[in-house]
Amino acid sequence: MVKIAVIVGSTRPGRKALDVARWVMDRAQGRSGAGYELVDIQDFRLPLLDEPVPPSMGQYSKPHTLAWAAKIAQFDGFVFVTPEYNHATSGALKNAIDFLYKEWNNKAVGFVGYGSAGGARAIENLRLVMGELMVADVRAQVMLSLFTDFENMATFKPAAHHDKSVAAMLDQVEAWSGALAGLRNASD
């Protein structure tokens, strides 16, 4: 069975990402195609990238990087829950991604974005980054609007039709995570 991380992509006080990630986890519970785990980047207290050697060399030296690498290496796929800040993903999520290289390779990813335009530009920003890291991004995505899926732009209350979007995205992440297993095993 593939193992997929639902990654909380914001560390900002008052963030909505944790509520959205928990909602995704609720929809993932009971699925037979994968095991899911909530991973909050805030728990790793990553500073701005402080490794002296590029991540592609795999020579991590800092305890926080080693802990983050060990966690990400456990998974076959990911779901990034990302806010949209200034037409991109959050700096905290981008920084967390940039700490590692091989731990991301040959895995699959799906996206759940939120913002004034449904997080669409944050998702597009992440798609570019994932290509460089050899992560296969799936087509299905979930876009949540601050205007219609958050009461007073604060309390997360997603419209019911998003359940189908989540299911489609998770179906694709599970399938691609499994399909890429041969590539992951060949590179180990």
Score class of each variant (00 low, 15 high):
residue 3 K to E: 04
residue 4 I to H: 04
residue 4 I to M: 11
residue 4 I to C: 08
residue 8 V to T: 14
residue 10 S to W: 01
residue 11 T to K: 06
residue 11 T to D: 03
residue 12 R to N: 00
residue 13 P to E: 03
residue 16 K to L: 13
residue 19 D to T: 09
residue 21 A to E: 03
residue 21 A to W: 04
residue 21 A to R: 07
residue 22 R to L: 08
residue 24 V to E: 05
residue 25 M to D: 07
residue 25 M to L: 14
residue 25 M to N: 00
residue 26 D to Y: 09
residue 26 D to M: 05
residue 29 Q to R: 15
residue 31 R to S: 02
residue 34 A to V: 12
residue 38 L to F: 04
residue 39 V to I: 12
residue 39 V to G: 04
residue 39 V to W: 01
residue 42 Q to V: 02
residue 42 Q to G: 06
residue 42 Q to M: 08
residue 43 D to N: 08
residue 43 D to E: 09
residue 48 L to A: 12
residue 52 P to V: 08
residue 53 V to T: 13
residue 53 V to Q: 11
residue 53 V to I: 10
residue 55 P to C: 13
residue 57 M to G: 09
residue 57 M to E: 13
residue 60 Y to F: 15
residue 61 S to F: 10
residue 62 K to G: 10
residue 63 P to Y: 09
residue 64 H to F: 10
residue 64 H to K: 07
residue 64 H to M: 02
residue 64 H to Q: 07
residue 65 T to W: 08
residue 65 T to S: 13
residue 68 W to D: 07
residue 70 A to C: 00
residue 71 K to F: 06
residue 72 I to Q: 07
residue 74 Q to F: 11
residue 78 F to D: 03
residue 79 V to F: 10
residue 81 V to H: 08
residue 89 T to A: 15
residue 92 A to T: 09
residue 93 L to Q: 07
residue 95 N to C: 05
residue 96 A to T: 03
residue 96 A to H: 01
residue 96 A to D: 01
residue 98 D to Q: 05
residue 99 F to M: 02
residue 100 L to W: 04
residue 102 K to G: 03
residue 103 E to W: 08
residue 105 N to H: 15
residue 105 N to P: 01
residue 106 N to Y: 13
residue 107 K to Y: 12
residue 109 V to S: 14
residue 113 G to S: 09
residue 113 G to N: 03
residue 113 G to E: 11
residue 114 Y to P: 00
residue 115 G to R: 03
residue 115 G to V: 02
residue 117 A to D: 09
residue 117 A to Q: 13
residue 118 G to I: 07
residue 123 I to V: 14
residue 126 L to N: 09
residue 129 V to D: 03
residue 132 E to N: 03
residue 134 M to R: 15
residue 140 A to D: 01
residue 143 M to Q: 14
residue 143 M to W: 06
residue 144 L to M: 05
residue 145 S to V: 08
residue 146 L to V: 04
residue 146 L to I: 04
residue 147 F to V: 10
residue 149 D to V: 09
residue 150 F to D: 05
residue 150 F to R: 12
residue 151 E to V: 11
residue 151 E to L: 15
residue 154 A to C: 10
residue 158 P to H: 05
residue 163 D to V: 10
residue 164 K to W: 06
residue 165 S to H: 13
residue 167 A to H: 05
residue 169 M to D: 00
residue 169 M to S: 11
residue 170 L to C: 06
residue 174 E to C: 03
residue 174 E to M: 13
residue 175 A to G: 07
residue 176 W to S: 14
residue 177 S to C: 15
residue 177 S to K: 04
residue 178 G to F: 05
residue 179 A to F: 10
residue 182 G to N: 00
residue 184 R to G: 09
residue 188 D to F: 12
residue 188 D to W: 13
